[in-house]
């Protein structure tokens, strides 16, 4: 057992080195903008850049719409599958896994060809519609994570009893989903939401190919043209991802115990 522990430490330390050295290097690099001394100049420049602010805000807004759309699609579906159509579960689960099989670049390529300006559904003909298409694309990308999160949440509550109780009290389907089911799986929905946020905020492929002024393409452009600012932005992006994941962890503590089980 003693030898085992020794090797466990070696593995852990090697792993930690691999994961922390790039972060340290990036932090160090981001502080080097002013010659000779460490400073936060790069962060100041980046945060003060109006393009950073607009692209970042754009991505945040897109992320919020994506989360709303994802919840609207996933919660009623997962609920209904659990309540009434369990025989459809394999089909729905298969579909929710498709975005892991079909690369994002292929999905967006399909959008561009199918929903071009001359098509019956010209999503690409104006800005608002293209923004909508981006939100839809992101909702598709986040589908596997959102569905899994919500389904795990639903597993921990007694869907049938809650539904019957609500029906006895005279609630319609809309009321049941919005005011009985959703509050009960809110924590699961929120962890799906933060994961969606982490995916959407820096996404490059879809935003770039749909020509949207999002944070991902801005970051890409900056890497090609600047030295220190991208380092600062990488650190900021890491902190945002970290924040999302920590929030999920914190939330899972409030979730019903069995919601923490894998599957």
């Amino acid at each position: 057992m003693k030898a085992g522990r020794f090797w466990a430490w070696i593995v852990f330390i090697l792993g930690a080195a691999y994961f922390f050295i790039p972060l340290i290097a990036t932090i160090e690099f981001s502080l080097r903008m002013r010659r000779g001394v460490y400073s936060f100049d790069a962060y100041k420049v980046v945060l003060g850049d109006s393009q950073f602010q607009t692209t970042f805000m754009y991505s945040v807004i897109v992320a919020v719409f994506t989360i709303v759309l994802g919840v609207l699609i996933v919660v009623p579906t997962a609920y209904w599958i659990r309540l009434r159509l369990p025989q459809l579960r394999p089909v729905v689960e298969f579909i929710t896994l498709l975005p892991l099989v079909i690369p994002a670049i292929v999905i967006v390529f399909g959008y561009i060809r199918m929903y071009g300006s001359n098509s019956p559904l010209p999503f690409l003909s104006n800005n608002t519609a293209t923004n909508a298409l981006l939100v839809i694309g992101y909702a598709a990308l986040a589908l596997p994570y959102m569905y899994r999160a919500v389904d795990t949440g639903l597993r921990t509550i007694d869907v049938r009893t809650l539904t019957e109780a609500a029906q006895i009290l005279g609630a319609g389907w809309g009321t049941i989903v919005a005011r009985v089911i959703l509050p009960n799986v809110l924590i699961a929905v929120l962890s799906g939401a933060f994961l969606t946020f982490a995916i959407v905020i820096g996404e490059f492929t879809m935003a770039s190919l749909l020509n949207r002024p999002a944070f991902g393409p801005y970051l890409q452009n900056l890497v090609a043209n600047r030295a220190y600012e991208p380092a600062a932005l990488s650190i900021i992006a890491f902190v945002i991802t970290w924040g999302c994941m920590s929030l999920i962890q914190v939330l899972s503590r409030f979730a019903p115990k069995s919601a923490n089980r894998p599957n």
Binding site: F19, I21, P22, L23, I24, A25, T26, E28, F29, L195, A198, I199, G202, E203, F204, G216, L219, Q220, V223, P230, A231, L233, S234, A237, F238, T241, W242, C244, M245, I248, Q249
Partner: peptide, 26 residues
Amino acid sequence: SGVASNFAGVPLAFAFIATLGRLGLV
């Protein structure tokens, strides 16, 4: 791991440029 598995794309690329690029720390 939850964080790092979602840390991809441009920021990750830049982290490696800062580490193992021609002028990287390592």
